[in-house]
Amino acid sequence: MNDERVIDHLVSLRELEPSPAQAARLRAANVRRRRSLRKALALALVLVAGTSTLATALIADTSGPRPPARVVEASVPADATQLFGALRRPASPAERSTAVRTVVSDRLGAPYVVEPSSIRAVGTTPLGDAAYLLYARMDGGLPDRIEGVAVVVDGLGSEGPYPLEDVRRGVAWGVHGERLMTVLVPDGVASVRVTLDDGTRAAAPVRDNVAFMALDARAPVATVRWLDPRGEIVATHRF
């Protein structure tokens, strides 16, 4: 019978082990990733700060305080404004204020550069902190530099910047300290539902392309579902 032959084949794969070459490749790739991340951060910081001292400090202690992100006037790419309604609405005087720029710049930190005209207040998180959406890029002309949309939460930190493609793919989300989940979504998504691996579920409305959820996120995120204004699921992203 066909099905039995297929099942026999599948059962035979229970004994399949990665080859020594695969295991060695994994170890090498892990080391390379760690090194390249540190090198990129160090190089970007050197370009931003102009000193190697700070880069050395970053390598020595990545958990220490970072210098603020630079604030540089530049245009926001058209594909970002097309994707995010929040970026299309005019900035309010408060959003253009020096105080808000300082909060955003401090929380995002080097080696990023903030585009100040893109800063939009996106309300208050369930934990009571003011939050901002903005367009930011990594400084310094690195070949794989990151640029995209970030969310800054005063008092907690930042998520992103996420490249626009990550937003479209539904992977632009993060968890602050296992207690606040931030999800960035494109226009058209009215609410978000999240399921964790331990079965925990949470939902939140989207305001200005961002949804916040207070949750005990000790288990990994399993699914993030996008819903339209009628409550219909328009996308399910599994992790």
């Binding site: 399949l16 082990e17 994994l26 170890r27 892990n30």
Partner: peptide, 9 residues
């Protein structure tokens, strides 16, 4: 990592 590599393989 090796356990993950084995299962995923």
């Amino acid at each position: 990592a090796l356990r993950a590599l084995t299962l995923a393989t």
